[in-house]
Design a binder for these strands. Sequence first.
RNA 1: GGCCCCUUGGUCAAGCGGUUAAGACUCCAGAUUUUCAUUCUGGCAACAUGGGUUCGAUUCCCGUAGGGGUCACCA
Length: 474
Amino acid sequence: MADIVTRFAPSPTGFMHIGNLRTALYSYLVSKSQGGKFILRIEDTDQVRLVEGAVDVILDTLKVTGIEYDGEPYIQSERLDIYKEYAQKLIDSGNAYYCFCTPERLESLKNDKGIGGYDGHCRNLPPDEIAKNLAEGKPYVIRQKMPDTGTTSYDDVVYGKVEIDNSELRDQIMIKADGFPTYNFCHVVDDYLMGVTHVVRGNEYLTSTPKYCLLYDAFGWERPTYVHLPLLMGKDENGNISKLAKRHGAVSFQDLVRDGYLPEAIVNYIALLGWCPKNTNQEFFTMDELKTEFSIEGLSKSPAVFDYEKLKWFNSEYIKKMPVDQYQQKALPVLDELCADYINKTKLAELLHTRISYFGEIPEQIQFVTTRPPMSTDLYTNKKNKTTPEICREILTEVLPLLESAEDWSNDTLFAVLKEYAVSHGKKAGAVMWAVRIAIGRQAVTPGGATELMEVFGKGESIERLKLAISELV
RNA sequence: GGCCCCUUGGUCAAGCGGUUAAGACUCCAGAUUUUCAUUCUGGCAACAUGGGUUCGAUUCCCGUAGGGGUCACCA
């Protein structure tokens, strides 16, 4: 069997939609799982939607996700002559024709319910009229001539046989009036010229693929293998499901990275949205593992809803597995920006390590550190530790001088001091810890216990918060 | 609306004629922990529906319903 060649052919829109990234991933894996080639082609034939710097976004995304393309990327806007040449071939063979219809006429056709699309008006223009129009410089497009009768079918690797009535097919435009080709035409030419054996793309192309098959046939080329992928969906707050879009949340790779999701976690998660490994329940995959485990048979037919909760879970697992220094490197800058100098950021970051699911969560998690939340004395009441505001007040006042005289402000020492106090005063350790933690943290739930928080705050701020808390308990 | 595709718990999903219908996320309960988190137990929850085919259908076929996609000088 000849080597597999797949491609990823995004248009430069300025951001990488997560569904698009998944398509790239699968396309890459279809090839690499078989030791094939994977090429990148930039489809920038829409002149009105050009976005500056958009190609870099694509390149960067592929780089950080570890999706490596072979050779240099192809740029369609640099290949215009090629498309014209091949369009001409189709005109010569009678499979395409010039169309001089005005946009206005096409518009009125569209609005006419009985017709609902192009009517083949220029299909059989006499040669001399075409020549005349051309000589006059009349704007024109080139259209593909579709068969009037019969059906066209192909075998999709994941969906099986797909058959369409040719009467459903319109004479689609291959070359636009501005001389640029349409996707419908140039991707076929490119895929052929670039030796693409497997076309891997989203299932929105499932029903237009017969048109492309017809193009291959018209050229006398062998059709590629088609691998259509189930769509990625989003769910809105009303439970309605549709193609994953902005209103569902962050939908570009860039958005997710900005929120503090790790590329490896994102890739791992989306790899499993529409694909499942055979003979294993494994959920965590490195790119290398994906390359060896991936098989087309594991692809699903039904659309998958993108679940932010599960992504969060994946990400938190990846964060937990991060080596400490690497983790600190990511967390510290965030803390540096938010926290006062006296805060022990390294310690705080350490506490956060098992508690955040993405780095964007840090600011709200540490709000009680950057500000002093309003105190509610109800917080001192805890059933399990049998504490009340009164008991806590007693504990805090007794513990304050002990802490003030503490020389070492490390977690271990502080813990020993409080434990010592609890034992010698016949108090439950949990009660003492509860009182101190509430006094310091000023909220019910805090990342870390009493002494850990004190270490984070340092002696000065800790004592101040303690005194403040006592004064509020009168 | 025409055409095409899809349909296992709330979500991702395994299953490919005979199973107590896996597993993961979420949620709940319990244990551990100086709170929370982590960790560890356990639990709730599914084959859209009606007909066939078959000794037997979640698995195969048809209809219905629901969802999605597509009908551009966008890709």
